[in-house]
């Protein structure tokens, strides 16, 4: 089966800290990483390929440096990687992004399954996966923790609050991978060496034959009008003393606030 994995390069938010004086993000020197959920997506793609044969192609839409993330996907074992990059794509919201990625996927030789991460670490919207599925008119299963492929059907176990739901879909289909799906493999030295030699083609607006009106800012219905640091509306009350004493104080405070 032929699999397309969509990945995104994101700033590593676990390395981000907050400047206590200005209450703004300190982003200097923050490394870029593959969105962590996308590593789960790559892993399940590789496992399905190992089981059923076929190919795994990694796609990423982003600026030229997103090539690093694709290089890493190749090192993990993806067969091909394609960068979707054009000035015309800058400023795309989730609608425009899902359009561009869907147009790129249409240009890939063939696909049976598209895998995305559950959501991206920087935006956290979880909209692009379902958006691509809708653009392509194929079924989707979000929050996937397990998959079984049988001929032209896929059974996907989804993790919902307190329950698992298993749904079956006809291929081609799209799934979004949850963190609990697997433990992504590390790229071995051989993989890293092989990935270095591989060519990563860049597909532009023209290559994917996209409508410029549907890309970038002109294709994006939403506009960010303001960005601001979150307000901390409360002060921290420090409780001090012996363990017994502070524990009692706390319980009293929580009861007063009707939290217990």
């Amino acid at each position: 089966m032929d699999i397309v994995v969509c990945i995104k390069q994101v700033p590593d938010t676990s390395e981000v800290s907050i400047d206590p004086e200005t209450n703004t993000l300190v982003r200097e020197g923050v490394p870029s990483i593959i969105n962590p959920y996308d590593e789960n997506a790559i892993e399940v793609g590789l496992q399905l390929k190992e089981e059923h044969g076929g190919t795994v192609t990694a796609l990423s839409m982003g600026p030229p440096q997103a090539e690093e993330a694709l290089r890493q996907a190749l090192a993990m074992g993806c067969d091909e990687a394609i960068l979707i990059s054009d000035r015309a794509f800058a400023g795309s919201d989730t609608l425009a992004t899902s359009y561009v990625l869907a147009e790129a996927i249409r240009k890939v030789d063939s696909y049976d399954l598209i895998i995305c991460g559950k959501q991206a670490f920087d935006g956290d919207t979880a909209q692009v996966g379902p958006g691509i599925a809708e653009q392509l008119g194929i079924p989707q299963a979000t929050y996937a923790v397990d998959v079984k492929v049988d001929e032209n059907r896929i059974a996907v176990k989804r993790l919902l609050a307190g329950s698992f739901e298993t749904i079956e879909m006809k291929l081609p289909a799209l799934i979004t991978a949850d963190k609990h799906m697997n433990v992504p493999r590390h790229a071995g030295l051989r993989g890293v060496m092989a990935a270095r030699k591989k060519e990563i083609p860049t597909w532009t607006l023209e290559d994917i034959e996209a409508d410029p009106e549907k890309c970038g800012l002109s294709g994006s219905p939403t506009t960010v009008v303001e960005i601001f640091p979150p307000q901390r509306s409360h002060k921290t009350e420090r409780l001090e003393g012996e363990a017994q004493q502070v524990a009692r104080q706390l319980v009293e405070k929580l009861r007063e606030a009707q939290l217990l």
Binding site: D93, A126, P130, E134, T142, S220, P221, T222
Partner: peptide
Amino acid sequence: TEQGRDLAPRIAVRIKTGLTAD
């Protein structure tokens, strides 16, 4: 919710409008 986050982006793409998450 899990349902809303699965459903809303599909509808937004279907009717070609903006959607703000969360």
